[in-house]
Design a protein around this nucleic acid. Structure first.
Lengths: 98, 98
DNA sequence: TTGACGGTTAGACAAATATCGAACTATCGA
DNA sequence: TCGATAGTTCGATATTTGTCTAACCGTCAA
């Protein structure tokens, strides 16, 4: 095992951003959806599951991105969200230390 | 191993509360402090480490308590904070499922 | 009993933020 | 070239929330 998740070091500021990002249920659901889809999900597919404006969704995406939890791959008209497993694991490890 | 942490089932509402509770750095520090002290810590000891009013601290304690993350034992004039390891573990398990 | 002390509650206030509509940019097919 | 479509950015708004001060409640020792 041990795929592409290499050890990630999170700064205090990043940890804080991640915690805040997870605090909003909508954003958590987004992460969940990406996870359920195997790690990547198109932005359009997201919209179909979240009853919010495109503007709002875009806002949440940026929030998750700056927290480091996802990467956004833009190709042509479309965008694809990808969960950063390394960061996610690092955050879990951090919480586990309590 | 396997001490007193028995399986805990968290409702969606509780999960949300916990995420929100962790979003504030102050509250996270409180949890951290309790953890570092082996799971319990007097309220007075807390105050010495957090540069906030007693009122503010009380507010955060209640927030952590209603989230289920800590229990507050009141005896006479004093209060003691205790980390609920079962709930904490259940939350980690939940995050791990993503 | 009374005063000091630990903690809580209530109310106010400022900062953060989730959301929206509207205007915008960029891409792609006809 | 035009129009439709995917997503972003901006500005406004309403809600949430972290913090404080002030007043309060219980406990304990003198």
């Amino acid at each position: 095992m041990a795929a592409k998740t290499k050890a990630v070091r999170l700064t205090a500021r990043q940890l804080e951003r991640i915690a805040r990002a997870l605090a909003d249920p909508r954003r958590y659901q987004i992460l969940e959806q990406i996870g359920k889809s195997g790690g990547t999900l198109s932005c359009t597919a997201m919209r179909e599951c979240q009853p919010v404006t495109a503007a709002t969704l875009s806002h949440h995406m940026k929030e998750l991105e700056t927290a480091g939890l996802i990467r956004i791959a833009r190709e042509g008209k479309f965008a694809t969200l990808e969960l950063d497993r390394g960061v996610w694991q690092a955050y879990l490890d951090h919480l586990n230390r309590i």
